[in-house]
Amino acid sequence: MPILETITILDSADIVRVRQKVRSQTVALGFGLVDQTKIVTAASEIARNTLDYGGGGSVTLEVLESAHRVGLRLTFTDQGAGIANIELALQNGYTTGSGLGLGLGGAKRLMHEFEITSEVGKGTCVTTVRWRQ
């Protein structure tokens, strides 16, 4: 499947860039406005985690296309501290920072597929897909 681009996430301006790139790709793929808003919001949440907890990293945008559906896959990777307990991290209200603990669980609810792999001390990878409705 075509990889569209990889965006590095090293400061808060990069989070805005991620939002803008994800937005323009969903527009190009014909996603509706609510769908666009959901993916962009999820991307913003995960990108901020990549920056704040992962010490920076990157996101790769890919188009998924088959005979009967079209989707956008986002893969965020970092080499940060990792997540010891993924189930706990996904819970609403759980935070080790100063946030609300909504980002990760919220992003999962906003997307159709959501997978986290993480190793403590090595880093985290979040892969997520939303299909065009």
């Binding site: 406005l33 609510v34 666009q36 808003t37 959901k38 919001t41 949440e45 609403n92 609300l100 909504l102 669980g105 919220g106 992003a107 609810r109 906003l110």
Partner: peptide, 14 residues
């Protein structure tokens, strides 16, 4: 607030 944002915020849990 745009309706699409309101819908998204509810799902986000905010």
């Amino acid at each position: 607030m745009q309706p699409a944002i309101a819908i998204t915020l509810v799902e986000l849990g905010l």
